[in-house]
Nucleic acid binder design. Structure first.
Lengths: 269, 269
DNA sequence: CAGTGGTCTAGACCACACT
DNA sequence: GTGTGGTCTAGACCACTGC
């Protein structure tokens, strides 16, 4: 039965049987990899390959220990790190699950915009308006960010998010065309909940990590109109690159945030 | 010799010897605290009390295990978490050290502003200009942030940071007056390196964690002049509250960042 | 109750830094 | 070599979930 998992190369270790000859510049590659790191990589591969999908319960620690032929403690340390990276979620008494953007009570995991006063949810759900969704060829800039070639097909989505009927976020997304075949304005409009949840269920793309670059900019005439502010109003420009499991960027997002009633919150440590 | 450390209350645990009488509403306080958490707290107390100062080598894991009467593994887990929070720094073969803002190769640990192109250091060290440093009484707003009473003494510092002679950051700081007695413009100007390093060495205040709130704002006439931009230029407003070990806010900082050649970088996961 | 993750221990051995 | 943190194991027991 065991689908097997190939026991890890027990040691990718260095300098063992090296005879006593000249050290030959003393082998500049230590390249030592702890067992639990190898296990972590194997689990990551299973996630990437879709063996366990977002929301799924993965095998118990003892099962994985048996599969990989290591002790439970070693599996535990691997899972600990994956959980710390928000790839897995542990639930005592129940098991370990693959993290997901859906059905996870935190609605927008990557959105750092908060109302100046009141809680995150006192806003209620955002009103979303899709302004556009079309397929086109990547500009040099977009291609570079998504590691495509200029001219490769991409999907561009534009939308506005409003809170209490005040348009607050105007954003454009670019997605690799090949991975998001079949993404239409209808799909987008019909889907409730976070967009990243849709990406998971419909396209098997799970966003795991992102980098953002923030600047303060003046509202262009077009942006001003869509956000209902005077042209020239200072806006927070947020450029986000989101990555999947394997570290490949799968989304470029450029947002303009109104910060008259909201702020971008960040924790430093 | 052993300065002692009082072994942890072996278990703050519930429901043990409780006889078979009525469960009495089944004690709604689970209040279970793992041993390693208790150890973590004890270490934290030693840090707070100044038993080990920033940069110091703390006792080895085996020593601490002996002191607290627990196994090395338990101490290890406690230290692991403190290291993850950047309170301690482990160095294989050498020992575990108290984290410090000084002599730590990352110059500005809390500054998220990066040049649009080039590395963090291609900028060279920032040119710092102290605009002011005076003692005054806390406004209601400042007092609330620092958990003081309005009217309590505070120290206010204003300064400008420039890169390549381009003034880029204009910021004001407010510090509790009692903890920063003796902070003068001369001290500030004379001290090289990060301001937080000065706070550690001169005032024994180590900043451990901070929260930032970002907004896009228009440059006032005064700010515009100091940052050498036209009035009304969009600037990134960064309000930071920095905390010490015990979670008490010790600094309020309001910064205005030029983002024409720099951006605020953030990692999401 | 059984099954899961969570804690704690004790001991062995490895990798690294210093002397 | 000695001492430090880092890895790995094996086993015992605890706490939580759900049957």
């Amino acid at each position: 039965m065991k689908p097997d998992g190939s026991s890890p190369s027990v040691r990718a270790s260095p300098a063992v049987a090296g005879a006593e000859g000249t050290p030959v510049a003393s082998a500049p590659t230590p390249a030592f990899s702890p067992l639990y790191q190898q296990i972590k990589t194997l689990i990551l591969h299973s996630l990437q390959a879709g063996e366990w999908k977002p929301g799924d319960l993965i095998p118990s620690e003892v099962e994985l220990a048996a599969r990989y032929r290591v002790s439970q403690g070693t599996v535990r340390k691997a899972i600990d790190e994956l959980a710390a990276d928000n790839l897995l979620v542990r639930r005592q008494g129940k098991g370990t699950f693959v993290a997901t953007h859906a059905e996870q009570h935190i609605q927008y995991r990557f959105l750092r915009l908060h109302p100046d006063e009141g809680t995150l949810d006192s806003e209620g759900p955002a009103q979303r308006t899709i302004l556009g969704c079309r397929r086109l060829r990547a500009s040099a800039e977009v291609a570079a960010a998504l590691r495509l070639r200029a001219g490769d097909p991409v999907v561009q989505v534009s939308r506005v998010l409003a809170f209490h009927d005040i348009p607050t976020i105007l954003e454009d997304l670019w997605l690799p065309g090949h991975a998001f075949r079949g993404l239409t304005p209808e799909t987008l409009s019909a889907h409730p909940g976070p967009m990243y949840a849709l990406f998971e269920t419909q396209f098997g793309v799970r966003m795991v990590r992102a980098e953002e670059r923030l600047k303060a900019v003046a509202a262009t005439a077009q942006a001003a109109e869509r956000l209902q502010v005077p042209p020239g109003t200072p806006l927070l420009s947020v450029e986000r690159l989101a990555y999947t499991y394997n570290g490949v960027p799968m989304e470029l997002r450029r947002g303009l945030y109104r910060t008259d009633r909201h702020h971008y919150r960040n924790e430093l440590s």
